[in-house]
Design a protein around this nucleic acid. Structure first.
Lengths: 220, 220
DNA sequence: AATAATTTTTAGATTAATCTAATTTTATTT
DNA sequence: AAATAAAATTAGATTAATCTAAAAATTATT
């Protein structure tokens, strides 16, 4: 089980995410789009990952991540999320600034480093976006998460994650006052455009668009 | 001033170190030896670094690092040493375990990250091996450092650095009880083999070989 | 100074990762 | 089911970084 290159790790991560934790088959084009690269490059890489038995690849039929690949992907995800916690908790970054840096840090190879970092951070179970951090064995528990858009009127929730992690969106949330851990109550739903009115922390009334409502995830 | 690759950064660092902070010309072979690679690879890379104006390269005459190159090298060195402080101070690594990991971390690209890390660590001026940490502008102050071997009898000192940073040597120092910050007094010098007797922290009498005495640096 | 030894560079290959363009396979639509 | 569209793969190039082997330049030694 030799070391994977940065590129290989990134492809594996993409396959893992797109396959919904390894269940579904993933198409070449969807990987290309996710990684902002060309389908030809993806085909090539899938062939190589397949030789390393990280994925099960049938030409023209898409790809499925293997157990071996899932383990590898989960370790990269673990590192990514631990570093995000470090950046926010210790280095005072905002949650919308950490992704890019964690994309680099996630490829540092040293099991001892990650163990020590995990200790230092107090074994966090979720990253600053509310996503769960896999343990050394790749195990983690998901909080059941629902988009605000699907919460019924007068339903309560706590913001635990966002679907879209793009920086502009996160900045918008900051601006209107939605943050991780905020308590929400849906006070009105507008049928024709999917927008809604919510109460944040029991005091701030907010009108949010369909786009926002669909991308903010809450537990209930 | 585009981004440098990992390999380019490593070559620049090697040139900087071998040239004694950029003063001397450096030979192709010495770089190859330092980097554990072949002279042909070095020639190639020097040509590329020269095109980017990071070094001044005259065929068959060796290279000199340029101002631009020196700036770049010092930023990598700054990052390396800050990460080493982080690993030792925050993650409880021993000083002989941090080099390899810092070799990876030094290539992470984010000026803001390094600024925040520096803040978090309280703007340290020296790394765990006693080497100075350049500031954002590449400036730093050297402590005047002398090998123990050159200290006269009854001379006092404080261990501030080691010349040889190889892991086996550092472990040996740990074992015999020499550490960064230890107070030393030379109590006897044996002429014919260069060994000596020293008193560490005023209480531990140690006999050290010529090899050790030449590689442990003290301020006085 | 001529020859030998050493150092450095060039020439030519190789590998990983990428691309464009052409081809092949699969899916969709008349 | 034939034709068309879409998706995926292959072929062929390119770039960075490396290597071995051969050639060229420099340095050292008779």
């Amino acid at each position: 089980m030799k070391k994977l290159s940065f590129a290989e790790e990134n492809y594996l991560k993409a396959v893992y995410h797109l396959s919904n934790a390894g269940e579904l088959d993933v198409s070449t084009n969807s990987i290309a789009e996710e990684m902002d690269t060309k389908a030809a490059s993806v085909s090539d890489m899938l062939r190589r990952l397949s030789e390393k038995e990280m994925v099960v690849y049938r030409k023209y039929q898409g790809v499925k991540i293997s157990e071996k690949g899932k383990t590898a992907a989960l370790q990269v995800i673990r590192k990514h999320r631990l570093w995000e916690v470090f950046l926010v908790e210790k280095l005072k970054f905002n949650w919308d600034q950490v992704h890019e840096i964690a994309e680099q840090l996630e490829h540092i190879k040293s099991p001892l480093l990650i163990q020590r970092l995990d200790d230092f951070l107090g074994h966090p179970k979720f990253d600053p976006h509310g996503d769960p951090i896999p343990d050394e064995n790749g195990l983690f528990k998901e909080k059941p998460q629902v988009p605000l858009a699907e919460v019924e009127i007068s339903g309560d929730g706590i913001v635990v994650a966002v679907k879209d992690t793009n920086s502009m969106f996160l900045q918008h949330l900051d601006r209107i006052g939605i943050y991780l851990g905020a308590k929400t109550k849906v006070t009105e739903k507008v049928e024709f455009d999917g927008s809604m009115e919510i109460l944040v922390d029991g005091k701030n009334k907010l009108f949010i668009s369909k786009e926002v409502a669909e991308n903010v995830l809450v537990t209930h």
